[in-house]
Design a protein around this nucleic acid. Sequence first.
DNA 1: CGGCATGTTGCGCA
DNA 2: TTGCGCAACATGCC
Length: 266
Amino acid sequence: MPELPEVEMARRTLEPLTGATIVSVASEDRRVFASSLDAVGRVIRRVGRRGKWLRLELDEGFVFSHLGMTGGFQLTTAKAPALPFERVRLDVVRRGKTTSVRYTDSRRFGRFIVSATDIEAWSELGPDPLLDGIDQERVLAFMKKRKRAVKEVLLDQALLAGVGNILAIEALWGAAIDPRTPSRSMNERDVHVIARELRAVIRRTLRYREAGRHAGHGKEPFRVYGHAKEPCPRCGTPLKHIVLGGRGTTYCPGCQKRHTPDSPRK
DNA sequence: CGGCATGTTGCGCA
DNA sequence: TTGCGCAACATGCC
C-alpha cells in the first residue's frame, strides 16, 4: 500500500470517521500497536496525512498510523469477524451508527500509535508534495548538502515526505536523470525537472488508484518500475535493474544521464 | 526452493 | 562525526 498516493487513498477511506466518537481500541500486537493514551470517548476531529503517515486528530490526542509495506485500512461493521492479518481494531460511533475500523498488515512493518502528543516521526517529516508543493530552492540546497546518489536523497522523508522507491524511480526516469548521479551535482534545472516529474507521477498514480477503487480500469501508471529488461518507453534501450542504497532500482541506461538533456554539465 | 518486495532502523566498519 | 553497505524485521507471492 505504501507511497504517498496509496496513503492518501487510505486517508480518504478514513475521512468519513470525522466527527465520530471512539468507543473501543483493541490490539494484541505489541509490534504494530502502541498506546500511551486512553482514546475511548475521544472524538475524531480531522483525518490528516503527511507523507506516508496518517494522523487522526482527536479532541484530545492523536492516532498515528504508518502502513509500512503491507498495511491497510478497511471500514466494516462491529459484528464483522476479524479480517486476515487484522492487527488493530478501532470502533467508533456517530449519530448512533457504529463503524469498525480494521488495520490489517501481513508483514507488520506498519504502526498504529495512540498518543497524547505529536510523535517524532511525524514532526521530522519534510514538506508534503501534495499539501505543501515542492520548494525547488530548498530541494536544491538539500541536494547540495548530501553525498549520496540523487535517488537515495529523494527517499529521505525529511526532504519531501511521501516519496518512496517507486515514485523516485519513475520521477528520475521522467526527468531522464541517472539515479546514481551524486545529488551534489544536481543543478537548478535538474531539480525543476524532478519536481515536475514527481508532481506528474503522484497525480497519475492517484488518478489510477481512484479509478481502481470503483471500476478497475485505467492505464498502469508505472513506466519503468516492474519493467526491467523491457524496452525503455522513450528510447527502446532495455531497462536495467540495479541495487542502489539497498533498494531495487530500474532505470534506462540509454537515456537516463547524469545531467538533464537541455543543460549538459561538464 | 530461491528470490524479490511500495519501508524504516540500527549496527559495524572505514 | 560522517558515510555507507547490509542485515533485520515478517510474510506473501511468483
